[in-house]
Amino acid sequence: EPSQADLDALLSAVRDNRLSIEQAVTLLTPSSGGGSGGGSMDAKEILTRFKDGGLDRAAAQALLAGRTPA
Rank of each mutant, 00 (worst) to 15 (best):
G38L: 12
L7W: 06
Q23T: 10
S36C: 12
L55P: 00
L47I: 04
A58R: 07
A62W: 03
G37F: 13
G38V: 15
G35F: 11
L47G: 00
P69F: 06
G33V: 09
G54H: 13
L19W: 04
D52Q: 14
P30T: 12
L7N: 03
Q23E: 13
S36Y: 14
A43M: 12
G53W: 03
D16G: 05
D6G: 09
T26N: 12
G39V: 10
Q61S: 10
T48C: 05
Q23M: 15
A13P: 00
P69V: 08
G54E: 14
L19T: 04
I46A: 03
A62F: 06
A70F: 03
D52R: 05
E1N: 13
A13F: 06
N17F: 04
P69Y: 03
S3N: 09
R67E: 08
A24P: 00
A5T: 13
G35V: 11
E45Q: 10
E1L: 13
A43Q: 07
A13E: 04
T68A: 15
K44S: 08
L63H: 03
A24V: 06
G39T: 13
F50M: 02
G53H: 04
S20P: 04
D16R: 03
L28R: 01
D16E: 06
D56Y: 02
L19K: 02
K51I: 07
L63W: 04
E22Q: 09
R67P: 06
K44G: 05
D42E: 10
G35W: 07
F50H: 02
L10P: 00
G38T: 07
A58S: 09
A5Q: 12
A70W: 02
G54V: 11
L28K: 00
L11I: 04
T68Y: 14
A43E: 07
R49Y: 04
T29P: 14
G66D: 12
R18P: 00
D8E: 10
A65H: 05
D8Q: 09
P30A: 11
N17I: 02
G35P: 14
S31H: 09
A9W: 14
A24N: 00
G54A: 15
S31L: 12
P30I: 11
R67G: 06
D8N: 07
D6A: 09
V14S: 00
